[in-house]
Structures are given as C-alpha cells and as structure tokens.
Write a protein that binds this DNA or RNA. Sequence first.
DNA 1: TTTCTTGGCATAGAAAAACTAAGTCTGAGA
DNA 2: TCTCAGACTTAGTTTTTCTATGCCAAGAAA
Lengths: 290, 290
Amino acid sequence: MAVVPRRPKGPPLNALRAFEAAARLESFVLAAEELGVTAGAISQHIKALETWAGTSLFERRAQGVSLSASGRKLREEFTQAFDLLSAATQSLRNLAPNPEIHIAALPAIAQLWLPERLGKLREKYPDLNVSVTAMESPPSLARELFDLSVFFSVPPEAKNPIVLAQDTILPVCAPALVDGLDLESVQLLHDQTWQDDWLMWSEATGVAVGDPARGPRYSLYALALEEAKSGAGVLMGHVCLIEKALQSGALKRVSSQGIRTGKVLSLELPHKSRRHPRIDEVVRLLREEE
Amino acid sequence: MAVVPRRPKGPPLNALRAFEAAARLESFVLAAEELGVTAGAISQHIKALETWAGTSLFERRAQGVSLSASGRKLREEFTQAFDLLSAATQSLRNLAPNPEIHIAALPAIAQLWLPERLGKLREKYPDLNVSVTAMESPPSLARELFDLSVFFSVPPEAKNPIVLAQDTILPVCAPALVDGLDLESVQLLHDQTWQDDWLMWSEATGVAVGDPARGPRYSLYALALEEAKSGAGVLMGHVCLIEKALQSGALKRVSSQGIRTGKVLSLELPHKSRRHPRIDEVVRLLREEE
DNA sequence: TTTCTTGGCATAGAAAAACTAAGTCTGAGA
DNA sequence: TCTCAGACTTAGTTTTTCTATGCCAAGAAA
C-alpha cells in the first residue's frame, strides 16, 4: 500500500489493436490477416493483455475462439475507438501534397479488370499516384487505409456499393479448340475460389458437361486464363474479366449462353468524411462515365 | 503504378499517441512527461510520423514547438480517438476481480496528507488495493489511468473538483525555537514550488519578516517539514499538511494569523463512465464523512 | 555584451517489443 | 480412425523504441 512507483503505463497499444481485431472477427487467424502478421503474434498480444488486465478475454476452443462475456462488453468500445483513430489517420494521410490512392481488389480483378482502366486513368491524370493491393476478401474500409475497393459481392452484402457490372459466366477456350468441341469430355479449367462455376452453369443452362469437377485448378484466375489461351482446356469465363481476350480473339465463346451468377462487380468507398480528395475522378473513370 | 505490395500498414500507433500528446500540450517535453519517456523519444516519433505522412506537423521554434495549420485540424480528431481508447482501457482494467485503485497526488500530499487517510481506509476495507503515484502536476484523468487525484488548485481551474479543504498557511517551528523568536532574523525554510509563501503571508498579515527569500529551499515539502521539526528554522506551514505535527506537538504555531492562499485541496475523479467500481467508498472516507 | 536557461535535434548504443517459424495439441467431421 | 483447422508454445531473430549524450538556437538575465 502506498508505494510510489513510476507513472503507471497502460497496456501496449498494439495489443489493444490486436484484441479489437480478434474480438470483432472472432478469430485470431482473420485478425492476423487483417493486421498483416502471423496468428502467433495475435496470440501473444492477447495473452499479454489478459495478463495485464488479470482477466481472461477469450474462451479458447479447438476450432476457434469466442469472446468471453466480459470481452464482449469491451468490443464495442474498442471498435469505436479504433474506428475514430483510423479516420484520424486517414485525415493525416490526406494532408500530404499528393497522397497515394490505395485500391484493394480481388487478385483476379487486380490483374484482369483494373490494368486497362488504370492505364486510361494514368493517361488522363498523369500526376495521380495509384497503388493496388490484391487480397482474397474485402477489407474493412472503416479500418484499413484503402481509398477504394473492387470485389465481387452478392448485392445486400455491402453498405453502399456502386455496381459496376453483373457477373456473367460462359465457357470459353482457345480458337484452335473450338471446332467440334465436346463439353462432356474436354478438360475443364477451374479457379480455386470459384469451384462451382461449372456446376452452376450446367444446371442453369441444362447443358451436360460430364463431371463438372474434373480438370486442373489454379490459385489465380489469370493463370487459368493463360492456360485456356494456350489450349489446355475450356475455362468458365467471367465476362467482365475476359473482355480483352475475347476482343483480341485469343479466346472464343464455346456457347453463347451466358448466365448470371447473382454476384456483382462492386466498388466501395470509405465513409464520406475520410475520402481521398481526388477519389471522384477515379470513380467516374472506373464507371466508364467519361 | 499498379504494383502489388503487401498489405499497407498504417503508421505506428505509438507515434500517433506521441503526436496526440504533443499536439494537445504543444510541447515535446510535457508530452514526454505524460507518456513517461524522454523528449528525444517524442521527437523521434513525430519525425517518423511526418515522414510517413509526407507533411510537417509542427513548427519548431527554439523555445518550443507550435502546431502547424494542418496539424491543428488533426488534433481534435486524435484527441477524441485516444480519449475513447483510454476509456475503453479503463473498462478493461475494471474487469479484473479486484482492480487496483490508482491515486495521483502532489508529492507533499502523497507524503503528508494521504498516509493517515489511507491507513483508515485499509482498516475499514482491508481488501482494497491502493497505489499512489506522486507527480508535480495533475494528470489528465481523461487520458491517464488514474482513479482519483488530489492536488492543490485554484477553484475555477478544474472541471468537477470536490473541495477537501481551504489552503491556509501560517508559520510554524520546533517548540524549542518558539520562545523569543524574531521573524526578521531567523532562518526561513522554503519549499521549491511554493517560494512565495513567505512573501504572501507577510503582505497579507503586515507582519515584517525581513528578506522573505532568505534561507534554504527543499525540493520536497516533507523534507522542509522534517528540518523544521529539528529546529533548522521557521517553515511556512500549510495547515492541512501539518495537522499531525501540530497535534503531536512536534511543531508549534509561531503566529496565530493563518491566511488563505486562494488555493484549495481538491479531489478529482474521471468521467462517470470510467470510474472504479469501489471509488465511492474511498471518496467518502477521504472527505471524512464517515 | 556575456552568460544562463529552456526546448528541440541528432546519433549511437542498449533495451524492449514484436514478429516468425516450427512444432504441439485438441476437437470436429469425413 | 484419420485428417484438418485453429490455437498454443517456445526459441530465436528482427524491428522498434528508448535513453544518454552532446549540440545548437533563442530568449532571459546579469
């Protein structure tokens, strides 16, 4: 009692941030991904915080963590605080004379859809400073420092998406393969993350394709596309991503029956108060309004 | 253009905290003190942040820094964010089974006023876990993790102070010295931070004391008090701090003319939403209501 | 003037924190 | 039963952060 220690320090800020992310996502792995570190780091942060607070924050289960009752109450407070902090940081970034425009997109979109548009953008506004980060799932724009994101989503999912295109799929292959093609026996090419494209198309059109799961899988859609161009098989093409290959004749439609997947190519922006000063120019161009 | 780097990281959180403190206090030195580090550390954080943002945040002058126009706009945002964060941290701390009660006080108060009360407190609630930190100026209770502070202040200064006592001063000395004492020639004892006590008293009472600045200075009031007890001279006594010495007879009043300094001994609490669950018991006892 | 004091800057080295990598453990589902 | 996902642990490394020191400039004081 009545010791006189040095000024008491709060817990490490990074540990608080780790807690907030883990609490919001209810997963150390997802939190780690959002913060760009390994899950082990998150685990350590949480442990440090639990030690500091003298209380346990998560209930560890073998297949994932869940917030303990006490942790749940805190989540809201911390999320609010870090949202504000993130907004302030965005303002700070926008102070710079010509701040970079950070775009987040699905790898396939980043490789196949964006480049052409960004080329035009650069032509029109040569001073803009754009960078693109590819990732599997859309970042929280309230938290991460992106100025714009382009992903596929099912419509009621996002808050205020700007719909750029419907996602329409139809099979395509190299011109050499197209004559006398038998969809029931030819190799089918798949993207890792869109494994049921073939099944969906076959069911929707009634066209028989044999085993819809046969054939090689690629971790990148752009890779599958290259393979298709060189005649490795038939790819289920997402129209908005293969426009260029169709125009140039590098790929041909195998069937004219395109179907909608129900997803849309959607563009999202952060809250108004934290938008990049020149984001409107970019959005207008991406929507092809000019 | 269109590189695909790893997930972009924001600036280090600690740098943001340093900026917030420096911006609010408009001084690296004060910010360093608040955060419990050296000024050099703050300087480095700010520089890192300025590099990250590509903009300068402070205008450096030889006798201190001032916020640049762009920095000023950000201050409010960051202060809000860190206030929230600090509140959330407080909630976290209060989750623990029996969280410590952190008291901040002026060194003199921590040494001379608190101990007796804390003794009673311990007697009445033996399970309470109290710690005391001495510091020269009152901490921001919205920011630092204190549950209660006791300082001298001039009334309109604090937001919601609980006034514990008026600050009344009068000269005291050891019993052996009191007979035939000549205030114009005896040694006067001073506390470093209350150098004008003697002048104020002399002017208010009209009693001549010779040169009011003569005699030794002590960096701690408790030290001056000990010296007075052992007969080194006459101390300007702050009544609320020397009650015990007067009661025990270790010190005698040299004059019965006490005057008010205009300051009050005041107790402050953080905002309601972040108070320690058992703070009311402590406050009641410190106010001597029970 | 000259000197002193205050507040900030730069740098090197030391200390602390954060991160990764690799292996372990556990429960769920095939 | 086997496999897998998700979390944990630990050791070692890398990165960040901090301190200590000396320096400099401008205002205050002598």
